[in-house]
Design a protein around this nucleic acid. Structure first.
Lengths: 152, 152
DNA sequence: ATTTTCTAGGTCAATGATAATCAAGTGCGT
DNA sequence: ACGCACTTGATTATCATTGACCTAGAAAAT
């Protein structure tokens, strides 16, 4: 057992695996009780591990008969992917945001580990970037590099 | 006893030797306590002796149940190759020289086409470089990028 | 039909537990 | 004496957990 969030993540992933459909429905309260935690813990897991950039969409409903639906998003054509990536990067990005994005792309096998390393090194070598600060220059370089290999 | 960093390095290498897997997990705090040093000492050892150039990758997580994972990627004398490449690049290089070198590396299958593209894009994105002009900045970036992935 | 109540899920800020970074200090080998 | 590798600790960043408070939707009451 690593930690609660990890266990909940695994549980959800197992559910998704087991399904024919590429979505599952949960009840937040039940799941929280099952893991003996506070309900907002579930939101934390979803927010940190089932984001769009990691290939998931969340849909939910409150009130009686409330639910949380988790959909696994399949990847489209390469130009759609490029658009999606440009959107994810945006106009400005910080180094650590870029790092997270690259990790996610590697997890989804859009890029290899070596490619991720190359991009990280290139970003690190941009002059005059203060840590944690959003930068247009970083964003441009990142989009150029990703666009250069994902499109072809 | 040579020095602390050396001892910690040896300890980590021994752990890696002893494992079936080619990675180990550490807790920075514990290791620091074990060696009676400050935790950031561990980062120093990792930064100075377990770099990608030397055939290692580090992965970590903070907070409760935090950890540091060290993966071995090498299988051979990577430092020889790194030295060779640094020699090829030299202190200064022009964009077109770099391009020729990258082509050669791709032909010999040291890097893939995608990796070559990534590096070329990164080089092209360096500001204030005139085509054909030797540049220390280009050389540094190129060496950093190649050194980062030519490990096995 | 409208209002009230109840039952979900959502958000956010505080807290504690780690790890990362950075800048300054130390000391050894040449 | 100088440079470089090493050491240290203060500061910053990240991850996980919790709980108080907020909001949406459905059912019940009027």
């Amino acid at each position: 057992m690593q930690n609660l969030s990890h266990d909940i993540e695994r549980y959800i992933l197992d559910l998704l695996e087991g399904e024919q459909e590429d979505f599952i429905s949960l009840r937040r309260k039940e799941l929280a009780e099952m893991f003996g935690c506070v309900p907002s813990q579930i939101n934390y897991v979803l927010r940190s591990r089932f984001t769009p950039e990691q290939g998931y969409l969340i849909e939910s409903r409150r009130g009686e008969h409330g639910y949380i639906k988790i959909l696994r998003v399949t990847c489209g054509t390469s130009s759609e992917r490029a658009d999606h990536i440009n959107e994810l990067v945006g106009d400005e990005i910080s180094f650590s945001e870029a790092q997270r994005l690259l990790k996610a792309l590697q997890d989804r096998e859009f890029i290899t580990e070596r490619e991720r390393l190359l991009i990280e090194i290139a970003l690190r070598n941009v002059r005059g970037i203060r840590r944690g600060e959003d930068s247009e220059e970083l964003a441009d370089l990142l989009k150029n590099m990703l666009g250069g290999i994902i499109t072809n």
